[in-house]
Amino acid sequence: MAVTIKDVAKVAGVSPSTVSRVMANHPRISAETSKRVREVMEELGYHQNIMAKSLVSKTTMTIGIVLPRPADEMLLNFFFYEFIRGVLAQLTRAGYDLLMAGSGNEREELESVTRLVRSGRVDGLILLHSRVGDPIIELLHREKMPHVLLGRSMEYEDVPSVDTDNLQAAYDATMHLIAQGQRRIGFVSGPSHLALSQDRMAGYKKALSEAGLPFKQTWVVEGEFLLESGYRAMASIMSQPEPPTALVVIDDVVAFGVLKGLTELGYRIPQDVAIVSFNNLQLSELTMPPITSMDIGTYQLGYTASQMVLRMISQEPILTRQIIPHRLVVRESSLQTISPVK
């Protein structure tokens, strides 16, 4: 005969409602009580019947993430793994599952979100980016679906979001290069229609302006968040009569491609070209040379995003916009050992 909540409550010496609260990670349940109840659950072999709970509560106990690009492409960027690790840490603690749906373009992304919302397969969604005139955010507003955006909405101030101060982070990264004596600083960007790319470009420009340094459009190259994109960018940006002697790169994975491209072209890092990037992936300290990178708290971004969407589902108050602190992790790729070419 299957073990029930009442069986667990009797052995643990608590009420059935307390057992339910323990399974829901209710904040008012003490750590001692929670530990005792969970030990009894394990001893008795009790497993929560999610299907039954869903029928009663009319919830799916599932949060959705729709990938803005094909899964095989997204999984090439290690930022995604670290972000998902943070998401899962919070969801698992709360007894929720994660459902990921892929898409190949903007139309497929909208179709995936529409299916998830209208089929009742998820209780909330985490969005990985925002674009101008985003129909997905408009849809979620209409359907009153709890959702949290990674990044800044370019049109809706009331969209719950978790973000880095990307303008300030890019400003700080650029000022680091300037402090190293760099005067010809380029920028390897992501897609220009994304708020992330626009904010980091703005921070880069602000630093140049304050330092009295020139901004040259020919020192800016746009691409995707892929290693191959950074690799290809070097052929064009470094073929100029007066190429930059330092680069701010939008993302560590892109920076891996930049490093590969520069090395093949015969440039030494950092003696000929200094590099600063973003995300501080673990692989950044294993490259040759190790890459200076802005740590934006990727794990914490994921953890906070899932925490926010769960609070929205429970109708608890949240801060509409949460900013995760950033810090520059300085490594060899940006430390000027030889004066740059003037």
Rank of each mutant, 00 (worst) to 15 (best):
L310Y: 13
P289S: 03
R311V: 05
M294F: 04
M294W: 03
V309G: 10
M308K: 10
P289A: 10
E316Q: 15
Q315M: 13
Q300H: 07
S293W: 10
S314G: 10
G297I: 06
P290I: 06
E316L: 15
S306F: 07
M294E: 01
P289L: 11
L301V: 13
Q315W: 07
I313V: 14
M312D: 09
M308F: 10
L310N: 12
D295C: 01
Y303H: 12
M308A: 12
T298Q: 01
M288D: 06
I313G: 07
I313F: 07
P290L: 04
A305L: 13
R311W: 08
T292N: 08
Q300G: 00
Y299E: 04
D295G: 02
L301C: 05
M308H: 09
T298L: 11
G297N: 07
M294K: 02
G302S: 07
I313D: 06
Y299L: 06
Q300P: 00
I291P: 02
E316C: 07
I291E: 01
G297W: 12
P290S: 08
I313E: 10
T304Q: 10
M294T: 07
P289D: 06
Y303I: 00
E316R: 14
M288P: 00
A305T: 13
P289R: 09
I296W: 03
M294Y: 03
L301W: 11
G297Y: 08
S314C: 07
L310A: 11
V309S: 11
P317E: 14
M308W: 10
S293F: 09
P290A: 04
S306Y: 06
Q307E: 14
L301N: 13
T304F: 06
Y303A: 05
G297F: 09
Q307T: 09
L310V: 11
L301P: 08
P289E: 04
M294V: 15
S306D: 02
L310K: 14
Y299C: 01
T298G: 00
Q315R: 15
G302Y: 12
M312I: 15
P317Q: 11
P289H: 07
A305D: 13
M312W: 09
M308P: 03
